[in-house]
Lab assay of single mutants.
Amino acid sequence: MKVIFLKDVKGKGKKGEIKNVADGYARNFLFKQGLAIEATPANLKALE
């Protein structure tokens, strides 16, 4: 799953980066902790 990092995550990505991560890791950790959001077209446009 492609995500946009909202904060730096050690070993995974830095704020503003778009990367592929495992679906479960994204849903169960990154999204719940507020560290990333899904890289949807609307979210990508908002990032610009």
Rank of each mutant, 00 (worst) to 15 (best):
L35M: 08
L47T: 07
E48V: 12
A36W: 01
E17W: 04
N43D: 06
E48F: 10
K45G: 08
Q33K: 13
N43A: 11
F29R: 07
G11N: 09
F5P: 00
F29A: 08
K19D: 03
E38D: 04
A42G: 12
E38A: 09
F5Y: 08
A42H: 10
K14T: 09
G11M: 05
K32D: 12
G24S: 15
K10T: 11
L6G: 01
V21T: 03
N43V: 07
E17N: 04
A22I: 08
K7E: 11
L35I: 07
K14N: 10
Q33P: 01
A39K: 02
I18D: 01
R27F: 09
V9A: 04
D8G: 05
V9Q: 01
E48I: 13
K19M: 12
A36H: 00
A46E: 11
G11R: 04
G24N: 14
T40G: 04
L6N: 01
I18T: 05
L35Y: 10
K15L: 08
G13W: 12
K15H: 07
L35P: 00
E38N: 04
V9G: 01
D8I: 03
G11I: 01
L47Y: 14
K12T: 14
A39F: 09
A22V: 09
N28Q: 10
K2E: 10
K14W: 08
G11Q: 05
A26V: 11
N28Y: 11
E48H: 10
M1A: 05
D23P: 14
L35H: 05
V21A: 03
G16P: 01
V21M: 09
A22Y: 09
K10A: 14
D23N: 13
N43K: 06
A26M: 08
F29P: 04
F29Y: 15
P41F: 09
Q33M: 15
A46K: 14
N20H: 13
V21Q: 03
K19Y: 07
A36E: 01
K14P: 01
F5I: 01
D23F: 12
A42F: 06
A42K: 09
N20L: 15
G34T: 03
E17V: 03
M1H: 06
L30Q: 01
L6E: 01
E48N: 11
K15F: 05
N20I: 15
K7M: 11
V9S: 02
G13K: 01
D23I: 15
K45E: 14
N28L: 10
R27S: 07
I37M: 11
N20G: 07
G24T: 12
N28E: 14
G34E: 07
I4S: 01
D8A: 06
P41R: 09
V9D: 01
F5M: 04
I37F: 03
L6V: 10
